[in-house]
Amino acid sequence: MDITLNPADLTHTIAFYTLALTSIVAALIVVTAKRIFRAAVALAVVLICGAGFYILLNYDFIAGVQLLVYVGGIVILIVFAVMLTSSLESIEEPPSLGRKALGLFSSLAFLATAVIAFSETKFPLSSISAEQPKDVAKAVGRKLLDYGAGGYVLPFEVISLLLLASVIGAIVVARNPKRKNEGSAT
């Protein structure tokens, strides 16, 4: 270990490994927990750790969005899904041994390939003197609404359309057809 570590870096390092360990353990719980509600809680933990990582990477704004949308929105949605489709206490049958083995093999193969791939690759790192924009939130906002070169206004609008379509689609799919008939009869 480098002795000339300054305190800020040390905190940074400790935070990274702590969060990493937590998120990996929580992620393992997500994929293996027998009780689906427990998995949902673990997912929330993973996502919160993710927000922590973003803060470590100096993207506070994205971390905020992550907490708001992911933890506050999607996880809650998933909990609803759990409750609508099975009881919170229901215990999931463990997957068959063959499937487990196949899944393990596939995921490890992916891990190995990916690790080998990026250990073999030389990434063009930005110079040490490069500075992050001062206010990430402001920069993101400007970029999203920029309709010039390198601007994201079109994908931004497309995303808004996608969200609208998915909301309507979800309503259509999930609506109970029987109840609709009753409604039209009265």
């Binding site: 994929v31 689906i36 998995a39 463990p94 997957p95 899944g103 596939s106 690790v115």
Partner: peptide, 20 residues
């Protein structure tokens, strides 16, 4: 991130519950 991704793959391939 790759470890997290691999764990995700494992989950996709093995979870029996669709919500999982």
């Amino acid at each position: 991130s790759t470890i997290l991704f691999s764990i995700g793959i494992y989950g996709v391939l093995t979870r029996r519950n669709a919500v999982g």
